[in-house]
């Protein structure tokens, strides 16, 4: 009939402990279950794209991993620290980029970065050096002292990535970062994320774009109705059309039950 669903076993060598380990997560909003015993392991240095329909629980999962929301049951360990008990340690290694800017529009690029750097307790000297490096890296060095309100959506999103990298986090959480970007800006974002991945950071990206998920990341998973319904290394994906077919299969299978 159709290809058997792959087991939710993560693609990692048995020796490596996963940097993100979420086990048996459940979450119910009012009476509506969003996560139903979701288990997800992400190895060091992986770039995982998480696909899923609206309401499949993607954003809820991301917020839980960032310690912004608590599961009803289940265990989350990030970098060996447990949430929510060791939230401060977990937060220090997480950077978040969202479809919201997470920037102050009435501040300049530099002022924004300085404010968020202070929240991560970076010393003044380190912070200044870091700001210069990152602004150069995201191509905004010349606009450093311009107010964010004057930035295009793509520029603001690049600044948002610089903000997320300020404290040199080992994990990047991305919540539909491509929303509202034109092609050129999306290509620049591709390059920045590729760079961050090459530096050995672990990346979890939520996205709607199947084509992009098939290209950039090292592993693709599909979330449907609160559990991991598909999980596969990028190397095994022949092309985007194949992935799109699997996506339709998984989501329709579950809808029809």
């Amino acid at each position: 009939m159709f290809a058997p669903l792959r087991a939710a076993a993560p693609v990692l060598t048995p020796a490596a402990a996963p940097i993100i380990a979420a086990e048996g997560l459940t979450k119910t909003f009012d009476v509506l279950p969003v996560l139903r015993g979701l288990t997800l392991h992400i190895a060091h240095g992986e770039f995982l794209a998480l696909l899923g329909a609206n309401g499949s629980g993607k954003s809820t999962l991301l917020r839980m991993l960032a310690g912004l929301s608590q599961p009803n049951s289940g265990v989350i360990r990030v970098g060996g620290w447990q949430l929510p008990r060791e939230a401060a340690q977990v937060r220090a290694q997480i950077g978040l980029v969202s479809h919201k800017l997470l920037l102050y529009e009435s501040l300049t690029a530099r002022e924004n970065l300085r404010f968020f750097g202070r929240l991560y307790n970076l010393s003044a000297a380190r912070l200044n050096a870091q700001i210069d490096t990152l602004l150069k890296r995201v191509g905004l060095a010349r606009r450093a002292d311009d107010v964010v309100r004057t930035f295009s959506r793509g520029m603001a999103q690049r600044l948002s990535i610089a903000r997320a990298l300020l404290h040199d986090p080992s994990i990047l959480l991305l919540d539909e970062p491509y929303t509202g970007l034109d092609q050129e800006a999306a290509a620049m974002l591709d390059a920045l994320l590729g760079e961050a991945h090459a530096e050995g950071r672990t990346i979890l990206m939520i996205t709607h774009e199947i084509e992009r998920a098939a290209r950039l990341p090292s592993r693709v998973a599909i979330l449907a109705r609160g559990v991991l319904a598909f999980d596969c290394a990028a190397a095994e994906i022949p092309d985007a059309a194949w992935l799109a077919a699997r996506y339709t299969e998984v989501t329709s299978l579950i809808a029809a039950r």
Partner: peptide
């Protein structure tokens, strides 16, 4: 709230 800045503050170790 507008640009989600409160969230950005809440995920900092503070």
């Amino acid at each position: 709230r507008e640009q989600g800045n409160l969230d950005a503050m809440l995920i900092a170790p503070i």
